[in-house]
Design a protein around this nucleic acid. Structure first.
Lengths: 340, 340
DNA sequence: TTTGTAATCGTTACCGGTTACGTTGACAAC
DNA sequence: GTTGTCAACGTAACCGGTAACGATTACAAA
C-alpha cells in the first residue's frame, strides 16, 4: 500500500482538463451536452490522474446511488448465509452492496439499533436497505425489506415458514414416541420466535398432548441464553425426553448441557434445532433440525428490494419460504418406549 | 416500515431548539463551549425529533469517522469466516464496520477492483480498510491491511503460513505412499497461491520425487476453474493417485469430477484441499485439508488496522499465522501400495 | 446581416454536516 | 470607568460532488 495524502478530486480533473467541474461531472455520468473533443480531454485527464468519484460526495447530493444496504445487529453463521444469497441476487445487477454492522457500543441488545443504522445510511448513502432480524418497526425514506421481521409487521419482509417447520419438528418427535417435549423459545418480539412456539404448541395439542408451561424456557436466540435453561430442564426429576430449541445455536448449547450432565444423545435425550446452520451437521451426533435456507432468504430479500427500489415490484410484499425437516442423529425414540 | 419523505436533519434540530446548527454539532460531538442549559435544550430536541447524524455528511467534512471498511471482490465461505473474526475484534471497540462488495459489473475478475472500491470509500467514509485478497498494490490516504496480499507486497498484511501448510499436506500424501501427486494451483499473483505451489514443489523435491509440470493445473481459486483441470488430470492414462488443490473450493470440484468419472475417493484417488471451510467437513468422505483459520486472519487484520488507525501499532506490519493439517476421509494409501 | 435555436459549458446554490473565526456579553482586574 | 479575558454562540466557508440556470458560441434560417 502506498500512503497518499492528496486524494484526486473532481476539481483536480477539471483543472487538468481545462474545464469546469460541472463538465467533468457530465462526462462521468454520461449526461448530455459535452462535445466529443472535450469529453475525450476529460477522460484522458481522469485516466492520467486515476480519478474515482467519491461515493460519499455523490450520495450526499444525489438521490440515487445504486448502492443497496444491509444492516445487521451481529455477524454470525446465520448472517453469513443470508449474505451469500444477497450477493448472488445482486451479481451483475448494477447495485453494489454496503453492509453496516455496529461494534456494539451500547451493549449486545440495545433496542433500536436497526433504526439508528438505517437513519445513518438511508439519509443518502443507499437506495434501500435489507434489515436482518429487526426488533421493531423502522422508518426510512427509502424502501426497506426485513428478514425475519418483528411481530405484526406489515412492512415488506421475507421469512421462512416457521410455523410449518416447527410443527414438523415437534411432530417428528411425537412420531418417535416422545410425550414430554421441552421447548426453548426465541426472542418473543420476533415473528419467527412466535411462530416457532406456535408450531410447538399446535403440534402437541394436535396430538392430544397437553402443553406443560414449565417445560418452556424463555431464551432470546442468543446461544448463551440457552445453557441455563437447558440445565434447568434436564436437572428436573421428571426431565423431558426431548428438547426442541428455536434455533440451532441454542440447540447446540442444549447438546453441550446434556453432555455436561452425563446424558447421552439421542439415548437419554433427543434434541431438535431450527435453522440448519453449517455447524449443526458437524456435531456428534449430527443435529436434527429444520432447514430454512438462509441463503434463499437473502436471495429473495435482495430481489424484492432491488425491484422495490426500481419501482418494478409487483408480487406480494410479504414472502414466506418453505422449510424442511433434516433428520440427523440427535433424535431417536425415548428409552422407555419400544416402537414396533 | 414507514415511508418518511423528510428525514430530520441537524437544522431541524437547531430550529426546534432555537439555536444554530453549529451549537447542535457541538452538543452531538461533546465539544467545548455549550452551556448546560442549551445542551439540555438541544438534547431534548434531538430526542423528540429522533435525530440521527448522517454518516455521509459527517464523513465528508470530517477526517475521522470511527468506521472501518472491508472491501472484497466476492462473498463466499472464505469471506464469511474472515468477517466473523473481524466483527469479533471490533466488538466494543468504538469502530463500526462497513463492508463494500461490488456487483461485478465489469466481469468476475476485473483488475483493479480493490483500488476502485478503496478510493470510493477511503476518500472520506472510512478511517482505514481491510482488503481481502487484493490483486495488486493499492494506494490510500488511510491505512490498509491486506488479507492474503499480492506477491512481493510490503504493505501491512495478515496471511497464513501457506508454505508450511502446503508442505505438510503434500508430505502427508507422500507419507501415505503417493508418488504421482497432481496439483491445482491458485491465481499466481497472490502470495498465497505462490507459497502453496512452492510448498508442493519443495515437499516433492525433499522426498526425491521429481516435479512433473504436466501434473500441475493452473486454476484461479474460483471453484469452477478447477473442474476442467481435474477432469483433464483424471482422464490421463497415467492419472495421479492423489490431487492437492490450492483451495477447498477447488478441491470440492475435484471430488465432483472424480465422482463423475466413476473414481472412488479415497480408494482410487486421494484429495487434499486448503482452507478448511465449513463445507469441507460435510462431504462424503470428509475432505482432508489444511486449516488456516480464516476467522483468525480476520481477527488479526482488524486488530492491526484498528491500531494503525489510532497510531498505536508497534508490532511487525506483516503477520503470518500458523496452519495445521486436518486429516479426514478423503486421503488414504494408493491402491497399488500396501503399507506395513 | 439579423435573428432564432440548439449545443456546449461555466456559475452557483445546495446536500448535511464541521469548524475557523467573529461577535456578544458577563465578569474580574486595573 | 475602561480594558482584558473567556465562555457561549452565531456566521459563513468548506468538504466533493450534482443540477438548475444562465451565458456563450456556432450554425441555420429569414
Amino acid at each position: 500500500m502506498t500512503e497518499v495524502n492528496a486524494p484526486v478530486t473532481m476539481s483536480d480533473v477539471a483543472r487538468a482538463a481545462g474545464v469546469s467541474t460541472a463538465t467533468v461531472s457530465r462526462v462521468v455520468n454520461g449526461h448530455y451536452g459535452v462535445s466529443a473533443h472535450t469529453s475525450a480531454q476529460v477522460r484522458s485527464a481522469i485516466e492520467r490522474l486515476g480519478y474515482e468519484s467519491s461515493l460519499v460526495a455523490t450520495s450526499l447530493r444525489r438521490s440515487r446511488t445504486n448502492v443497496l444496504g444491509l444492516v445487521t445487529h451481529s455477524f454470525q453463521s446465520y448472517t453469513a448465509e443470508v449474505l451469500k444469497g444477497v450477493m448472488q441476487a445482486l451479481t451483475r445487477s448494477g447495485f453494489d452492496l454496503i453492509i453496516y454492522a455496529n461494534s456494539d457500543l451500547y451493549g449486545s441488545y440495545s433496542e433500536g439499533w436497526e433504526q439508528r443504522h438505517l437513519t445513518r445510511l438511508s439519509g443518502t448513502l443507499t437506495d434501500g436497505c435489507i434489515v436482518v432480524t429487526p426488533w421493531g418497526e423502522v422508518q426510512s425514506r427509502t424502501p426497506v425489506v426485513a428478514i425475519d421481521p418483528a411481530r405484526h409487521s406489515t412492512a415488506p419482509a421475507v421469512t421462512a415458514d416457521n410455523l410449518a417447520g416447527a410443527t414438523a419438528a415437534v411432530e417428528h418427535l411425537l412420531g418417535l414416541g416422545h410425550r414430554r417435549i421441552g421447548f426453548i423459545a426465541g426472542r418473543s418480539n420476533l415473528a419467527a420466535a412466535w411462530s416457532r412456539e406456535e408450531g410447538y404448541r399446535s403440534a402437541l395439542t394436535g396430538a392430544g398432548v397437553p402443553v406443560d408451561l414449565t417445560l418452556i424456557g424463555r431464551g432470546d436466540f442468543n446461544p448463551e441464553s440457552a445453557s441455563p435453561l437447558a440445565r434447568a430442564l434436564l436437572q428436573r426429576a421428571d426431565r423431558p425426553t426431548a428438547i426442541f430449541a428455536a434455533s440451532d445455536g441454542m440447540a447446540l448449547k442444549v447438546l453441550e448441557a446434556a453432555k455436561e450432565l452425563g446424558l447421552s444423545v439421542p439415548g437419554d435425550l433427543s434434541v431438535v434445532g431450527f435453522d440448519n446452520i453449517p455447524e449443526s451437521a458437524l456435531t456428534e451426533p449430527g443435529l436434527t433440525t429444520v432447514d430454512q435456507s438462509m441463503y434463499q432468504l437473502g436471495y429473495e430479500a435482495a430481489r424484492m428490494l432491488k425491484a422495490l427500489v426500481t419501482g418494478e415490484w409487483e408480487g406480494p410484499r410479504q414472502m414466506v419460504l418453505p422449510t424442511s425437516l433434516v433428520v440427523r442423529g440427535s433424535t431417536a425414540p425415548p428409552k422407555s418406549i419400544t416402537r414396533s
